[in-house]
Design a protein around this nucleic acid. Sequence first.
DNA 1: CAGTTTCATGAGAATCATTATCAATTAGTC
DNA 2: GACTAATTGATAATGATTCTCATGAAACTG
Lengths: 136, 136
Amino acid sequence: MTEPHRVERHTRQRQVITAYMKAQAQFLTAQQVHDGLRELGDTVSLPTVYRTLTALVEAGDLDVRVSNNQSAYRHCSPHHHHHLVCRQCGRTIELADSPVEQWATAIANEHGFTDVDHTIEILGLCPACATLAPRC
Amino acid sequence: MTEPHRVERHTRQRQVITAYMKAQAQFLTAQQVHDGLRELGDTVSLPTVYRTLTALVEAGDLDVRVSNNQSAYRHCSPHHHHHLVCRQCGRTIELADSPVEQWATAIANEHGFTDVDHTIEILGLCPACATLAPRC
DNA sequence: CAGTTTCATGAGAATCATTATCAATTAGTC
DNA sequence: GACTAATTGATAATGATTCTCATGAAACTG
């Protein structure tokens, strides 16, 4: 009944995608990653881009964000899953620990919930976009 | 330059969908709403279900939640957009005001963000699911 | 280093949620 | 009841994501 021991392989494609995502400051769709890599000469098939991004999300290396019926991925430092995001340009600021952590846990306990996790996202207009685009 | 004055019409389909969603405690996909209505004998075309649900979301009457590449919709009381959700059965508990509100606003101001909104979601395993399904 | 195993990749097709199109229906108004 | 514009439904189109499966290449073996 022991798991068949799945070995993770270190392929060119995975390295390329991982490196690319680490260098990226924005949320990118699979398609954008695919195109971006091609521009650098590192061709990776679209299905592989999807597979790898999904794997990286499961590994906790990437954050996902769905908008417009599309998933966008972005590198994120582990354990700090809260963001302040500009709804215009997508500029993201990672937020450190907050009072929310404790509150969330407390609320969950109160209702008997276990194995608790939480997501917080603050959306707004960053200073730059506020001045540049009064109305888009 | 005045808007052409768009009149909202009160159709059978809209009433039916609105009523149905109000009576529902779970997040439902457009397809599920469509099927549910058909079972009640209130047939509404799938495109119309989509159109109506989208409109209701924009009106602030419904919450959306994306999972498995599908949007799910659920009635929600306005102004309280925070939920404690069971990741297994989808059971949802609406959370009242929290310390987060102030914190979010403070953080946003600190970074010069304006027109701020936020989303918080606490995911966990509800007591029922925790006992029934130790491992799925 | 050659052989073997097994996972990963890529090309293409398939899926399937969501949207667009457009003619036919209707709600709201006079 | 007639008029007008919004709404609906049938259908097709779109497009992101996933599946299939033959080929390629890691990792391991001896």
